[in-house]
């Protein structure tokens, strides 16, 4: 059940980016934790797909957090307070604190961006870019790449099956894997390039090279208020960042 949209996707995306910038600027674990608990968690819960987004966040951030704890928890030569000495590895208080701070920051980073991205209405985003007069080549690259992704993944699976039917058995050795990778990517790339060559002609025939603004079939969901809001928010965050850093340096 998708949530009701009140904001344009471009506004949502910018909001997420500014929030990340704020977290980096303020750089206090209290603030990071507050954002995590007061923004990210509620946003995931009301997203309409909490399980899917939660799993994605865990999958992306989990391994990083774990390996970060192992790395800094065990190997932190700058650490002074040694909690446990394991020969070459030493568990230090400083290392654990560092890992915790970094882990918190990474969680916020992942949580904010991933939640935004996974609830983003991509067609609407592309349409907004077009309505706002963004460079048509940039909009094409973004839109086409996002559209190709599932297609490429599907095609790779089909080719893998086709090659298995011809006798491909992937072994464990690196050479066998490299061979398998080539057997799948080569037909994949050839097919995609053949398509691209045809798409090149298609774009020219459909007037893609013409100058002047493009239009979009989808209605413009952006509003003047949101446009102003985006500008104001950007300027405000920049001013705040400058002020915070200057005060921090002086103090």
């Amino acid at each position: 059940m998708p949530r009701r949209r009140t904001l344009n996707p471009l506004t949502e995306l910018l909001g997420a980016v500014l929030l990340v910038v704020l977290v980096l600027v303020v750089n206090r674990w209290e603030f990071s934790l507050a954002v995590l608990l007061l923004v990210v968690v509620p946003a995931v819960l009301v997203s309409g797909q909490p399980r899917r987004i939660g799993v994605a966040i865990v999958l992306v951030a989990g391994p990083l957090l774990l390996s970060s704890v192992l790395l800094h928890g065990l190997f932190f030569p700058e650490g002074r307070v040694v909690l446990l000495d394991l020969g070459p590895a030493r568990v230090t208080q400083e290392g654990l604190v560092f890992a915790a701070l970094m882990g918190l920051r990474m969680s916020v980073f992942t949580g904010v961006l991933l939640t935004t991205a996974m609830t983003l209405d991509l067609p609407d985003l592309i349409a907004t870019m077009t309505h706002r007069g963004w460079n048509r080549k940039l909009v094409f690259i973004i839109g086409s790449a996002l559209g190709l992704l599932p297609h490429v993944a599907l095609r790779a699976r089909q080719i893998t099956r086709a090659q298995q039917a011809r006798g491909l058995v992937v072994g464990r050795g690196p050479l066998s894997r490299l061979r398998a990778l080539l057997m799948v990517t080569t037909p994949l790339v050839i097919g995609l390039l053949v398509d691209a060559s045809e798409r090149n002609h298609m774009l020219e025939a459909r007037g893609f090279s013409s100058s002047g603004p493009r239009t979009s079939y989808l209605p413009d969901t952006d509003t003047a208020a949101q446009r102003t809001g985006r500008r104001v928010a950007t300027v405000a965050v920049l001013l705040f960042a400058a002020a915070w850093l200057v005060i921090g340096a002086v103090a």
Binding site: K137, F140, I141, S144, A145, G147, L148, L149, H151, V152, A153, A156, T185, L188, V189, L192, L193, D195, A196, S197, R199, N200, L203, E204, F208, S209
Partner: peptide, 20 residues
């Protein structure tokens, strides 16, 4: 602005390959 259409059409597939 420097990109021709023939370069333009392969960039998305390069991106998709990278990510996939």
């Amino acid at each position: 602005p420097m990109l021709t259409t023939s370069s333009l059409v392969v960039i998305p597939l390069g991106i998709a390959l990278n990510i996939a």
